[in-house]
Amino acid sequence: MDDVKIGEILLPGDEAEQERQSERVRKRFWPVLKRAMRYVPFSRDLVASYYCALDPRTPTKVRGILLAALAYFVLPLDGIPDFFVLVGFSDDIAVLTAAFAAIRGHIREDHYAAADKALADEPDMQPAG
């Protein structure tokens, strides 16, 4: 994926677009994460970003960037379809890494605490390794 494509994916969008992405992410995040756990090297950051994106205290632009990245993550068909297991999540990882760099410092400790709890409470959410 090139920088221009990732930049286009991470556009925060207007309020209506953010609401559509929020609904898509809420509906599909956990099932997709369960499938991706062993392929995504930063699952704790990913889950914390989910909580940050849904937190109304998060600045609108930051929420928009995270929602765009998370919506891309949960899309069934994207740049490289996720059913190509090992390489299927590589484009998602690139988009998420760019989003994390763009919003650095906005994922707070309470988001990480919620992520730790979610990962600990669900046995199939434990990272492989």
Rank of each mutant, 00 (worst) to 15 (best):
D2C: 13
D2T: 09
V4A: 15
K5I: 15
I6M: 11
I6K: 06
I6A: 11
G7Y: 06
G7W: 05
E8F: 10
I9P: 06
I9S: 02
I9N: 01
A16K: 14
A16C: 00
E17C: 08
E17T: 15
Q18T: 06
Q21V: 00
S22Y: 02
V25N: 04
R26L: 10
W30Q: 01
P31V: 09
P31G: 09
P31W: 06
V32E: 14
M37Y: 05
V40C: 00
P41S: 13
S43M: 01
R44T: 13
R44I: 12
D45V: 02
V47S: 03
S49M: 14
A53L: 04
D55W: 05
P56Y: 02
T58S: 04
T60A: 13
T60G: 00
T60D: 09
G64C: 04
I65Q: 04
L67D: 03
A69L: 01
L70F: 06
L70S: 07
F73L: 11
F73Y: 11
V74T: 11
V74S: 02
L75P: 00
L75W: 13
L75Y: 13
D78G: 12
D78W: 14
G79Y: 15
I80M: 10
P81Y: 08
D82E: 14
D82P: 07
D82G: 15
F83Q: 11
L86V: 14
G88P: 02
G88R: 05
F89Q: 09
S90F: 12
D91K: 13
D91M: 06
D91N: 14
D92V: 09
I93G: 02
L96Q: 10
A98R: 15
A99D: 00
F100T: 06
A101Q: 14
A102Y: 01
G105A: 05
H106P: 00
I107N: 03
R108H: 10
Y112E: 07
A114V: 01
A115C: 09
A115F: 10
A115D: 05
D116M: 08
K117Y: 10
A118K: 15
L119I: 15
A120M: 00
E122K: 10
E122W: 07
P123S: 04
D124C: 01
M125N: 06
Q126C: 04
Q126A: 12
G129Q: 05
G129L: 11
G129V: 08
